[in-house]
Each structure stands twice: as structure tokens, then as C-alpha cells.
Design a protein around this nucleic acid. Structure first.
Lengths: 336, 336
DNA sequence: CTGTTAGCGCTTTCAT
DNA sequence: ATGAAAGCGCTAACAG
């Protein structure tokens, strides 16, 4: 079942069917309808491989993701998918596993398949990849911090600011010996750390010993373990600013297990505002980024760039919201 | 940069380079090494579109998933990816969004691209899809209940049994008025429900009014809302068997908010054994399925079928484990 | 607006 | 073990 089969039935040439399917304007409306009906009726589906080979464009948009198992990234992905599927593009995921070398390799593979575009989700291209992308073989959109090094358009938030505001909020509530906890540092980690450091320094209470990392990926379990490390490291710690909500939830559970009262004895702030953050007892203070929208807008940007109706290097700050919930509502004034 | 470019440099014909890359045995070892070195050095990457067109095989394995945002499915996916990537196959995800029509359409598209294989993750082919697949255009592996209708090999668990054992455990602990809660019923829902019903009937306490559903997707938030519905519907309810851990966690949080003691006043059982289940306070009783292994084994099965070293319709029961944790450890005997 | 010609980069088949 | 020829199904470029 090929293009020629359809063409023969309709009584036109193959290229006309091809055009009817791809460039509506270049076939008379009447003929086009007839062709579309026949295609439908015969159940013809174009061979994407042949199309890609002939046109040097696979019609696929590559999504470069550092992992496929982080809920926040999936929300972004869903937004992208919703927009992209409706517009006829295919999607190809490349999982870099937080590894620079894997990214280089996968991007190289993707580029060899002549993608229509590349979207970096939660990870900015760097090193060799960045250099390779500068030759702009196709449009690039990055979902990352707005200050990231970039190879194309960027949409995201000001991470340092979000992090600084969250830390500042804890300080305002009277917490002083606040630990910073993070799993394997990567991607946005540095900026979140900077925001924390800036806020702590401004308040005159910064101590590098309070920054605690672990090589394991973030999880609720890691959060639990972190609390014990915090108590070992900072004898009278009174709070934790967590890289994400999973860590925050783990710390909350461990506090409950040990009988540490949250927020009176210990304040907890997360990041992402996952489903459970508002529902936990006590509810978790956290930063919300409009992830689904972020995905949609990134996809829209990509489509506009491909269609040539947008520039190749816009920067969009989509903003964030700090939710000040129970886990940081210490009921006694600062310092008492 | 094409095959011929490499061939010219090495001083052989294109087809020899092609063979060196794909069928080691058909090129002399010495020549093969020389070719591989040159390929490496020139940075040649095969054009997958051309390869697919010429060979009528895209070298891609399609993963049909009902959603991309459920953590349990992602664990399976990771297992599949880990195995498949090492073996030279590409992966193409198709998100059916829990919709039969979308599945039909996506499977049709996938098949048109001549995939090397199709893996159904957490959703069994049905209706038109099942019929289409019976013609066996490529190997099929399903990760689903072992009793599912099938178009190829199956690997999974006996869901009814798992569910029956979990419910039975709650009954053994003295809970009697146990609600069944589930989001939009689909896929494995029916079997989990059957297991629950069988256990409740065996104990002589089954009441269809205790089965509570909601059209919204499962989430912690939905769990919270469910608890309120349970209390409205079953005045003296003393437990809930949840379709998954998110619902269980939501119910736990809501119990805490309302001052209902778990497990003394109310027992909670989840399903999946996510990260947080063992860490929650109290920890959650739940059923663990070895999801990552499931993914790995499914991928292995697929590779074996493709290589012709396994049959096209094996059925593997990978088993499950019931973790009896605090959320169902009622400290008073049954009926008192 | 429609058609003709040529060829995308690779692999198949058949030959040597 | 290696090569030559043919063609996979489609679209770009150029006619008309």
C-alpha cells in the first residue's frame, strides 16, 4: 500500500497525493477532498522512513530528558505531548540518565536522524553538545533556568530567585540554623544552592557545613536519612530547605517518627508543589512552577520557530509561586 | 557522510561496510576491524530512515503505555530501557491516555513504521488492536495480568490473587467494613475488584455499596476526598483497600487531619509499594510487584523472540509480595 | 495547479 | 568473503 496505489485509484500522479497530504494549498480543493477520502477509505498510512529519507527531515521532535522517572519532568512532558501530537509531529525521547557523555551520544544519534527540532527538558546542553548545536541544524528550545547557557530559545524560571525567596521566607519565620539538602547535585542544583546561600548570607547566618549532599537520587527514603545526618551535623538545626518535595516528605516522616514537632521544632520547605504537598499533615511549604503550562508553551515556541513565525532565541520567564504552608509556620517569634 | 564515503576511505564497497556494521560473521575479522576503526574515526552514524526503508524494519521497539505519568509504570519502563538500549534497538513510546480509540490509532501508526516489536505496558491490546495484532506483523510482549487476552507473550502477576490476599489480610486483622476505592476504573481495576469481592464474600461481609469509584485519575488528593466519601457512605467503616499507594497516602493524611487513628480505628492497604509506603507514619501495608525486573524480563523476552530463541506466546508469572506494615496492624482482636 | 525525472542512503538479491 | 545492480516509498526540483 503505497502512495502510487492511492494515486492510481484517484487517477492522478503520486506527487499530487503527496502534496494533498502535506501542502493543502497546492492542490485544488475539490481534488484534494477526493484524494483525502480515498486515502481514508484505503487506510493508507505514509511510510515515515521513506518520507524522512526523501525530505531529509524526520518530522520528529527530540525530547532530551535527564531521566524519565521524575514526576515534575513528566508534567512538563505531558504538556509538550498534548501540544505536539495535535500538530503532526512525532516525539522521540532521549534519556540521558543525568550523564553528560550519554547526552552527547544521544544528541549525536538524534541529529543524525534529522529531527525537526530538539527540546531539552530540565537540562541545558553543555560542552560538546552545546558546540555541536551552535551550528543550528534545527531549532532548539530549552526548558531550564532562564540564565542557562543556551543553544536556542529558553523558557523557565529564575531558580536562584525562587530558592532565595523560599529560604528568605524560612528566615522571616524565625528559623536560623537551616540546612540545605540535595541529592546528587546536578542541573538546577547549583542555582538553588546559590539562592539559599545568598539568603543565608544576607541574614548573616550562612555556614557551609549546613549544606548536605548525597550521591543517591532524591527520594522520600533519602529525605529520611538526611534528617538523621542533619541532626548529627548541626546539633541544634531548626529547619531544612529541600531540593524537592520528596526529600521534604521524607524529612517530615522522619521527624514524626522521632517525635520532632513540625513546624514548632523544625521547619521544612520543599520544591515543586507535588500533589501531596498541600495534603500532608502538616502541609508542606514549597515552590510551584507551572510545569504543564511550561511544557505547552515550550512546544508552542518550537512549532512557531519551525514555522518561521518566531525567533530562534527568545527567553521566557514563566514565573513561580511560593506557597507558605504549615510546615514553616513556626508559632513563636524569631529568636525566642 | 554516507556509507559510500566510509567505503571509499577503506577501499571496499559500500555493502561490505554495511555488513561489517550489522553481520559480523560475513566479513573477515581483519577487514571488519579496519572498517570499524574508520567508522569510529570518521564519526559515521548510519541513517536510520534509509536503513528502515531498505530493510523494511525500523529497528524500533514500540512501547504502548496508557500514561506517562504513573510512577509504577515508569519503573517498568526504566527496566525495559536499560535492557533495550544496550542491544541496539530504538524505543518509540506511544501514550494511549487510557483511551481505546487512541490506542487503535497509535498502534496503527506504529505498525505502519514496521517496528521490530511491540511491548504493551500495563495495558492489554483489545478490540480492533487485538485483531490486527493476531496477524502477527511483529513479536508482541504484554506486561499485564497473566490471565489477560493476549496477542503474544505475557509477563505479569495474578492480580486477582494479589488483591484477594491483601483483602484477606485486612480481614484477618479484624477489619470488617472495608471499602474498596479506585479512581477511573480501567485495566487492572476489574481484577483487583474481583479479588476484593472474593475475599469479602468468603468472609461473608461483602457489600457492593462499599465499592467506591471516581472518574478522576488516582492521586493523593483523590485519596483524601475518598475518605470523606467513605465516611458518608459507610457510617462505621473501619478500613480501605486502595487501588494504589497514592490513594492510600491521601486517605492516611485525611485520617490524620480528622483525628482518626490508623490502624486502631481505620486500616489502610495500598498497592505498589512505592518509595514512601515503608516510610509513612504509620507505614503503609501494600503489595509489591518487582516492577524494574518486570521491565527487564519483558525486554529480554522480546529480544529472544526477535532473535528466534523463544516462542511467541510464553506466559510468565513474576509474582508479588504482600508487605504487612503498620497501617493494618490493629492492636485489638477482631470484633471487639 | 499538476506532472516528470531523479535520487535520498541503505540493503536486498544474485553473482563471483 | 566480497561486489554489482536494483529498488525500498517518498519528495525536491524543475517543467508545463
Amino acid at each position: 500500500m503505497t502512495l502510487s496505489d492511492v494515486a492510481r485509484v484517484v487517477g492522478v500522479s503520486a506527487i499530487t497525493v503527496s502534496r494533498a497530504l502535506r501542502v493543502p494549498g497546492r492542490v485544488s480543493p475539490e481534488l484534494r477532498n477526493r484524494i483525502l477520502e480515498t486515502v481514508e477509505q484505503m487506510g493508507y498510512v505514509p511510510d515515515l522512513a521513506a518520507r524522512a529519507l526523501a525530505s531529509r527531515d524526520s518530522g520528529v521532535i527530540g525530547l532530551i530528558m535527564p531521566t524519565l522517572t521524575h514526576v515534575p519532568l513528566l508534567d512538563i512532558m505531558t504538556g509538550i505531548e498534548d501540544r505536539l501530537c495535535g500538530s503532526g509531529f512525532g516525539i522521540q525521547y532521549a534519556n540521558t540518565r543525568f550523564d553528560q557523555a550519554t547526552m552527547e551520544q544521544k544528541v549525536r544519534m538524534l541529529l543524525a536522524q534529522r529531527p525537526s527540532g530538539l527540546i531539552f527538558v530540565g537540562v541545558a546542553p553543555a560542552g560538546e553538545t552545546l558546540a555541536r548545536l551552535r551550528h543550528a541544524p534545527c531549532p532548539i528550545v530549552q526548558i531550564s533556568d532562564v540564565s542557562s547557557e543556551r543553544a536556542g530559545s529558553v523558557i523557565g524560571i529564575d531558580t536562584e530567585l525562587a530558592s532565595r525567596m523560599a529560604t528568605r521566607h524560612m528566615l522571616d519565620k524565625g528559623y536560623r540554623r537551616i540546612a540545605l539538602v540535595d541529592g546528587r547535585p546536578r542541573g538546577g542544583s547549583l542555582l538553588r544552592r546559590e539562592g539559599y546561600e545568598n539568603a543565608m548570607r544576607d541574614a548573616g547566618v550562612y555556614d557551609p557545613a549546613w549544606e548536605i549532599f548525597d550521591d543517591a537520587p532524591s527520594s522520600v527514603g533519602l529525605g529520611s536519612r538526611f534528617l538523621r545526618r542533619i541532626l548529627d551535623t548541626i546539633p541544634d538545626a531548626d529547619g531544612a530547605f529541600c531540593h524537592n518535595d520528596d526529600l521534604a516528605l521524607g524529612i517530615l516522616f522522619e521527624c514524626q517518627r522521632l517525635g520532632i514537632r513540625v513546624p514548632q521544632d523544625f521547619g521544612i520547605c520543599g520544591f515543586n508543589d507535588l500533589d501531596y504537598a498541600a495534603l500532608a499533615q502538616p502541609s508542606l511549604t514549597t515552590v510551584r512552577v507551572p510545569r504543564y503550562d511550561l511544557g505547552e508553551q515550550a512546544a508552542d515556541m518550537m512549532i512557531r520557530v519551525i514555522r518561521g513565525t518566531a525567533s530562534r532565541d527568545e527567553v521566557v520567564d514563566i514565573g513561580f509561586t511560593l506557597f507558605e504552608r504549615q510546615s514553616t509556620q513556626r508559632d513563636r517569634p524569631a529568636g525566642t
